[in-house]
């Protein structure tokens, strides 16, 4: 079975993010770039399905700049078979990114797209759901367990108030939540092999999809910083101040 996994390059989650004084973006000097953590979980899930079935292909796809090759190579080193970089030199909105991935998906014809629920930088939580609609496929967002049986897929989802189970035929889109699995690290032999795996580039303009952004980011501002308060000496004092000063209990 063929599984397509979209991959986004994002700042390491441990990075302290600073907004540029002119509001045009964030300061990217000293930023370490990594695969979006939810996409690592997606790659891991795809690899496990392939390993369990004993055959198949895991294809990575990014819509980004040349530098994104680095994250695609890391994904290949984890064990993915090949990668596609759709080259876009200007930032696109979620609709355009989803259209570009949907176009490639309709050519590649995977049985599953497994994709992170959310990019930890832009935090939209949109692309998987958009992709599912564009392809006319079922969607299972926020997956914490995936089970395949023949053509059918059953997914346990993390929702408000509990866990929901849904079922659907493939092809389909699954978006990953944190508890789905623990991603493996790339091994040294994996890194060696990854160098020789195919990484094809396609210009985004050649896909023939609408790209003009309908969501425009006008400016970025740093939020007001919360001031640290004070230390209290004892539990007794804490409860007193909460009662008499903060008046919350």
């Amino acid at each position: 079975m063929k599984i397509l996994v979209p991959v986004k390059r994002v700042p390491d989650p441990a990075t302290t993010i600073r907004v540029m004084p002119d509001g045009s973006g964030i300061a990217t000097d000293n930023v370490k770039w990594v695969i979006n953590p939810f996409d690592e979980i997606a790659i891991e899930e795809a690899l496990r399905i392939k390993e369990k079935q004993g055959s198949g292909e895991v294809v990575l796809i990014s819509v980004g700049q040349t530098a994104w090759q680095e994250q695609l190579r890391t994904g290949l080193a984890m064990g993915a078979d090949r990668a596609i970089l759709i080259k876009a030199d200007h930032p696109l909105d979620t609709l355009a990114i989803a259209r570009a991935i949907a176009k490639v998906a309709s050519d590649e014809k995977p049985e599953l797209v497994i994709i992170g629920k959310q990019a930890i930088d832009d935090d939209s939580n949109q692309i998987g759901q958009m992709l599912a609609e564009m392809l006319g496929w079922p969607q299972a967002t926020f997956a914490s367990k995936v089970e395949l049986a023949g053509e059918k897929c059953t997914v346990v989802r993390e929702v408000d108030g509990g866990l929901e189970t849904i079922a659907f035929p493939m092809p389909a889109v699954i978006t990953t939540d944190l508890r789905l699995n623990e991603p493996r690290y790339a091994s040294l032999p994996g890194i060696m092999k990854a160098r020789k795996k195919p990484l094809n580039e396609i210009a985004v303009d050649s896909l023939g999809v609408e790209l003009a952004p309908k969501l425009k980011i006008k400016t970025l501002n740093a939020p007001e910083k919360r001031q640290a308060g004070r230390k209290v000496a004892s539990v007794e004092e804490l409860v007193q101040v909460l009662h008499t000063e903060a008046k919350v209990i």
């Binding site: 964030i26 832009d122 740093a222 939020p223």
Partner: peptide, 14 residues
């Protein structure tokens, strides 16, 4: 909010 709330974006939808 973006970047775990470390940036607030003013946006426009067309």
């Amino acid at each position: 909010p973006m970047y775990a709330g470390n940036a607030l974006a003013t946006i426009e939808l067309d």
